[in-house]
Simulated assay, not measured.
Amino acid sequence: MGRKECIERRKSLLQEQREKKEKAIVKKLLPFLKGNIATYVPIKGEVNVFDICLQKGNVYLPKMIENYELEFIPYSGNLVQGTFQTQEPIGTACDPNDLDVIIVPMVSFCGLHRKGYGKGYYDRYLQKTNALKIGVAFDVQEEEFEPQSHDVDMDILITESKLWRNE
């Protein structure tokens, strides 16, 4: 299945269903939210865990920079329009090793394997950090695929019904 179909499946969840599913995901995610937390402002129907992260630690948000690279900047309450319809923070990037947890959005997943939007921003960043890598998705985003050699697996992947952990 292509990325476009996966995104449409995710976006097709009704608001009431989505809220119920997100609550179940947040409940499983809560025990892992400590310290410096990198997360994202959801786009295109991504799982929304932004508000709960704000309550649990110091929040860092992604900013896309040149050469398909990503950096995380402390969230200060101010966001500006970024690339690909994203909202991005203003400020100075943190060191990747200062992050304790990184919540990673995805288009689809297969076990602990993640498929993103295809540009490799997160895969490149995840190679630079020792943070706990937690993917969040809805069950409808699960699909069979072979990961590519540059893909970085999640340490934990959470949906409304399951929690996979890299043991």
Rank of each mutant, 00 (worst) to 15 (best):
L112A: 02
T39I: 05
I37Y: 05
Y122H: 01
L132A: 06
R124K: 14
K11V: 11
N36Q: 13
K21S: 14
E66R: 14
D153H: 05
I134R: 00
K56F: 06
K21W: 10
L126A: 04
M64L: 14
K44H: 12
T83C: 13
I43Q: 09
T83W: 12
D123P: 04
E8P: 05
L132C: 07
G82E: 10
E167L: 14
F145P: 09
M154F: 02
K34G: 11
L99R: 02
K20F: 09
E142W: 01
N48K: 12
G57K: 12
E19T: 10
H113L: 06
P31I: 12
E144I: 09
Y117Q: 11
R124F: 08
I102W: 04
G2L: 13
L157G: 01
V49T: 05
W164P: 00
R18C: 10
N78R: 13
C110T: 03
D95M: 11
M106R: 00
T92H: 07
N78K: 14
G57E: 14
T159K: 01
D153F: 08
L61V: 08
D139C: 08
D98L: 11
L29N: 02
K21F: 15
C6L: 15
F109W: 01
K56G: 03
L79Y: 06
T39V: 11
R165M: 15
N130R: 12
T86N: 13
G2N: 15
D98R: 09
Q141E: 10
R124N: 09
F109P: 00
A137K: 01
E5F: 04
M106D: 00
Q127G: 08
Q55R: 14
S161M: 10
N97I: 10
V136C: 03
K162E: 15
E88N: 07
K119A: 10
L126G: 03
K162A: 12
G120R: 03
G57P: 08
R124E: 09
D100Y: 06
Y125D: 05
A137I: 01
L79E: 07
N97V: 10
V26G: 07
I43F: 08
L61E: 04
F138D: 04
H150Q: 11
D123Y: 04
E146H: 08
D155E: 07
D153P: 09
E22Y: 10
P62S: 11
G118P: 02
M154P: 00
I103M: 04
N36Y: 06
K21I: 10
T86R: 11
I25W: 02
C53M: 06
S76F: 03
G135Y: 00
Q127R: 13
L157P: 00
Q55S: 12
I73E: 03
F145G: 09
R9S: 12
C94S: 14
K34E: 15
A93R: 09
P74H: 07
M106G: 06
E8Q: 12
T39E: 05
Q85I: 05
G118N: 03
N130I: 12
I90L: 14
I37Q: 04
F145A: 12
D95E: 15
F138N: 03
Q85M: 15
V140G: 06
V47D: 03
I43E: 07
L29W: 00
